[in-house]
Every structure is written in structure tokens, then in C-alpha cells.
């Protein structure tokens, strides 16, 4: 039996950004658990696919094209959701800009772009939604992060800094909103495949060999955890990054 605590029946969720092309799978899991879903990214194709999935589960869905680095567009998106559905219970920050270059070759604009998408957008979306969550004295914020929030990687200074920032943002805000019954958490994804049910990694690939589970992480691997962190079952969990890394985080 699926434990009833995982239910998101009657909840309204915004999934902001469309990093890693996992939008469809994440929206589908949330809708299966019972949530209505607002899709909010600039990727029209991904939003259409995700909307189809949500409808399959018989849930309401709304696609609002949004540049999640643009404060005004985010405020308008949230205002639209509030005026049409009256509330937001869950925010999933799923923006993710991947970027790798030796530090000396990183130009200022690239640095700003990575920080803007991976960190500032989390701040902007969370602030816009959080205002309503504080009014209603409840809320769930889940940000899709990375093992690179906690581990280093050459040529990935900007990306690591942005995800490390997400980890600290999560801890600090969790404390700030702890007494308002809003839980703020993140999922630290391991080396990921863009496919929802991705192919097995080549066994000769040195990266895949490094991963104890010998395959890349798929969207499907985080679905149930996303539902858990979005549900009332996790109301004593806050300020955490739960890693889904195929064992990478366990070894030296």
C-alpha cells in the first residue's frame, strides 16, 4: 500500500524552471500524488509534455511561460496563480544551468548567468511564493540541487559556488521560516542523465565506474522523494539537502 501521508490531494504546486529536462517526470509524480501543477519555465516543449502528463492523472495544470531570472515575470506568474487558484502550497525550484570552464577563461557574464539561474532565481521564486505561504502559515519549498553543492569539481567553480549557495540558502531560510510552518529543503542529485528513464551508462565510462551504483541518476530516481518533501509527511524535515547520488556521497 502507498502510505497516505504521501498524498498531495488538493495541493497547488508551482514547478519553476525546467533544468535537466526532468520537468515532465517531476510534474507527473506530483500529479500522481494528487497535486495541481503550475508549469513555469521558458521551455515551451517541456511544459507541453509535462502538461500532458499532469492531465493523465486528472489534475489541473497551468503553463505560464516565465524567465525565472526576471523578478517582474516571477511576481506576475505568482499573482496569476493566486488569482486563479487562490493559493500555492508547494514550490519546486528546478532551474539548472550547467556550465564548466577553467576559471581563468570564465568571463564575468558567464559567472553572472550561472549564479542568476541556479541561485538568484531560487531566491526570487522563493520570495515571491513565500509571501503567500507565510500568510497561510504553511508551505513546502523543494529545490533541485546537486552533489556539487557539497563536493568540488575542477572547471566547475561557478556551478559549484551556485549550488553551494543553494545549500546555505536552504539552511538559513529554513530557520527563518521554521516557526511559520514552512519547510525548506533540497534534493542533491548525483551525476544525471537527461533521459527520464535514462540509458545505463557505458560501463567503460570512468565516471560511471566511479559511481557505486554504476549508472547515472534519472528523473524517476527522485520522484518519490520529491513527493515526500512536498507532503505533510516531511513536516519535521527542514534545512536539509537529501542526496540521491547513487552512492557517490558515501565514498572518499
Amino acid at each position: 500500500m502507498i502510505p497516505k501521508e504521501f498524498s498531495l490531494e488538493g495541493k497547488a504546486a508551482i514547478v519553476a524552471g525546467a533544468g535537466r529536462s526532468w520537468l515532465k517526470t517531476m510534474a507527473s509524480y506530483l500529479a500522481e500524488a494528487g497535486a495541481d501543477i503550475v508549469l513555469s519555465s521558458q521551455d515551451q516543449k517541456q511544459m507541453e509534455e509535462a502538461a500532458q502528463e499532469v492531465k493523465k492523472w486528472g489534475r489541473r495544470t497551468m503553463a505560464i511561460p516565465t524567465d525565472v531570472t526576471n523578478c517582474q515575470q516571477i511576481e506576475e506568474m505568482v499573482a496569476t496563480v493566486i488569482s486563479q487558484w487562490g493559493k500555492v502550497d508547494i514550490l519546486v525550484n528546478s532551474m539548472d544551468l550547467q556550465f564548466a570552464k577553467p576559471l581563468l577563461e570564465v568571463v564575468e557574464d558567464e559567472w553572472h548567468q550561472v549564479i542568476a539561474t541556479n541561485l538568484t532565481a531560487v531566491f526570487l521564486c522563493t520570495k515571491a511564493v513565500g509571501r503567500h505561504m507565510i500568510e497561510s502559515k504553511r508551505g513546502k519549498i523543494v529545490t533541485i540541487s546537486s552533489v556539487l553543492a557539497e563536493r568540488g569539481l575542477p572547471n566547475s567553480t561557478a556551478y559549484c559556488a551556485s549550488k553551494g549557495g543553494v545549500g546555505q540558502f536552504t539552511k538559513a531560510l529554513a530557520l527563518e521560516w521554521a516557526r511559520q510552518n514552512i519547510q525548506v529543503n533540497a534534493i542533491g542529485v548525483g551525476w544525471a542523465s537527461d533521459e527520464a528513464h535514462g540509458e545505463e551508462a557505458e560501463p567503460t565510462d570512468p565516471l560511471a565506474r566511479y559511481i557505486p551504483l554504476r549508472r547515472l541518476c534519472r528523473a524517476d530516481d527522485i520522484g518519490a522523494l520529491l513527493v515526500y518533501l512536498a507532503s505533510d509527511a516531511s513536516s519535521y524535515v527542514t534545512g536539509q539537502t537529501y542526496f540521491v547520488s547513487g552512492g557517490v556521497m558515501a565514498h572518499g
Binding site: 529554513a174 521554521a178 557505486p212 518519490a224 524535515v237 534545512g239 565514498h251
Partner: peptide
């Protein structure tokens, strides 16, 4: 305990009302 956590191993999941974040 379930198959939903198939890609999760060697991890530590705190559940502490924010204690470790503080």
C-alpha cells in the same frame, strides 16, 4: 525501505525540525 529509493545508498537523511541547519 522501498524500491522508490533504488538510487539512494550510503546517504544520511536528517529529520530534526531544523536542528542541524542551526
Amino acid at each position: 525501505a522501498s524500491d522508490a529509493s533504488d538510487y539512494v545508498t550510503g546517504e544520511v537523511f536528517p529529520i530534526d525540525g531544523g536542528t542541524l541547519a542551526s
